[in-house]
Design a protein around this nucleic acid. Structure first.
Lengths: 172, 172
DNA sequence: ACCTAAACTAAGCAGGATGCTCACCTGAAC
DNA sequence: GTTCAGGTGAGCATCCTGCTTAGTTTAGGT
């Protein structure tokens, strides 16, 4: 299998533009990066093909769907039953994500809930899963640093020489 | 301030369509939901205005940027210095997210790293922040349930009666 | 029952963006 | 030197976009 490609400066420039304006057109990206439209298109296609761009679901705020509460449930599991517990958790709608952590049998379960009662019910349900030994629920009270990744994108080196194709005298 | 709006069935239909195909056009959404193009447009504008759609950054895979390792660092903090610690964490590029959890002084710090050494350095740095009393690092080994939220979107009730505007005989 | 405001619908229009294809060029790998 | 992947520039038909205007529906408030 092909070794995973890693973002180069061109990718960085494109991604930064996308972060700044998710609805930016390919042409505008091409203009602001100095790339040809075809190149931008090829890159963008590659991102999805390579999995560099994750699901759109990540952009949907759970609160908008009626789940304003978030919690992380640290779950200690009987090691042999780890997969079965994972499968059981997958059937719980309020479980958004489950990660296996170092420390043989710890799971980090990311859940959302409609309200406190709802959360109580959900954590109770998790605890009732066969193989779950102990849970420790941490409700998210505050977002000290909101999700961000822009700071990890290398700044572009390329001078936007703005050689355009098919494009009007766009004001940059 | 206006009370936060919550997704209705129309929103559900639109969001489901977007999850299925993030690059779907407004017109296609209008066609498949039976809404007018203007309505779809108004909704989509509202999503960003209301914050129902979160940053595009969430869709970028950190691995693609050269950070294949994820870890959650549970950080115990001197309560009075909580904000200061938050600010200090915000200056660390590898810190993607910081949440304050229930239990007065616990922070959940979501970090990424280039490799194990890198992670060691980062957690060491976090521990060195004034006000941090203790840290407990859980490296993500496995993704038992990948992030998903589609299951929380109410299924659409509306019959796609397909009244279109400006649109060709699209095959549904 | 009435009124109002918000939301949706319908239509039209100009400007361009899109997706695609082809030909050519370049640099790196073998 | 050949090959191949990736970038470029151009052209083209389709149709999407953003915006505006105007009429209609719906829900809430009094």
């Amino acid at each position: 299998m092909p070794r995973k490609r890693q973002a180069d400066q061109v990718d960085a420039a494109i991604l930064q533009r996308l972060v700044a304006d998710p609805d930016v057109t390919n042409l505008a990206i091409a203009a602001s990066t100095g790339l040809a439209r075809n190149t931008v298109r090829a890159r963008l296609d590659r991102y999805t093909a390579e999995g560099a761009l994750r699901s759109f679901e990540r952009r949907i705020d759970p609160a908008f769907l009626g789940y304003p509460l978030r919690a992380y449930v640290v779950t200690r599991v009987t090691q042999r039953k780890l997969d079965r517990v994972g499968a059981a958790l997958a059937t719980v709608p309020e479980v958004l994500e489950v990660h296996g952590l170092t420390g043989v049998s710890d799971l980090l379960v990311h859940v959302v809930a409609r309200d406190a009662d709802d959360l109580y019910r959900i954590t109770g349900h998790i605890l009732s899963i066969d193989g779950v030994k102990r849970t420790n629920t941490g409700l998210v009270m505050r977002e000290l640093v909101g999700y961000r990744i822009a700071q990890l994108i290398d700044p572009p080196q390329r001078t936007a020489k703005n050689t355009m194709q098919n494009s009007p005298p766009t004001t940059l």
